[in-house]
Every structure is written in structure tokens, then in C-alpha cells.
């Protein structure tokens, strides 16, 4: 019963977390997954969220087995 949480770029460096599994019961939404994975750190305003490889808002519901990711604004191209 877990959710995989990934961090990228500046967030991965500042939190010093690449990837962590959190208890699904503690993460009913994407925002809750952030708090469970970061021990309650405040989510910066600019952070973007993904659920199962799709961009989503932080209030999106999460289910057991999902993959959640957090990252700063993208700068490819």
C-alpha cells in the first residue's frame, strides 16, 4: 500500500530526495504525498505536480500504486 514519489531538478537537490515510497493512507491527494514525502516541508508556490506521468493540480486524488512527481517549471527545448 504505497505511493512512489519522485523529485526533480532543484527540488531533488534542495530536499535531497530522489525518490521515496510513502504510505498510501497518508497521501489521499498529490499535495498530501508532498507532505508525507518531505516530512511536512512547505510546498513552494512554483512547484508543478504530476500523477502517473500527467500534469495535475495538487488537489488531485491519489490511489495506491500511483506515481507522483514534483518539479520546478520546465526549461527544455
Amino acid at each position: 500500500m504505497s505511493i512512489k514519489v519522485k523529485f526533480f531538478a532543484t527540488l531533488r537537490e534542495s530536499l535531497d530526495i530522489d525518490q521515496v515510497d510513502v504510505d498510501a493512507a497518508k497521501a489521499p491527494t498529490v499535495a498530501d504525498a508532498w507532505h508525507a514525502a518531505t516530512a511536512g516541508a512547505v510546498m513552494p508556490d512554483h512547484v508543478l505536480c504530476a500523477l502517473n506521468l500527467e500534469h495535475v493540480p495538487p488537489e488531485t486524488a491519489v490511489s495506491d500504486g500511483d506515481e507522483v512527481a514534483f518539479f520546478p517549471p520546465v526549461t527544455g527545448g
Binding site: 526533480f8 531538478a9 532543484t10 504530476a50 500534469h55 518539479f71 520546478p72 517549471p73 520546465v74 526549461t75 527544455g76 527545448g77
Partner: peptide, 28 residues
């Protein structure tokens, strides 16, 4: 394709400057 890639595709750039310091590119 190019403009959508700039907003949706999950890439991040980290630059190395002449003095060997590094910094993340913050926006396009």
C-alpha cells in the same frame, strides 16, 4: 510542437559558467 514542448515536456537545464559554478535555468 516547439511551444507545447517548452511548456509540457519535463526537461530541466543546469548551466556551468566560466568559473565552473553551476546554476539551474529558472524559466524559458
Amino acid at each position: 510542437l516547439m511551444e507545447a514542448l517548452k511548456t509540457d515536456a519535463t526537461f530541466w537545464k543546469k548551466e556551468t559558467l566560466a568559473d565552473n559554478s553551476e546554476r539551474w535555468v529558472e524559466r524559458n
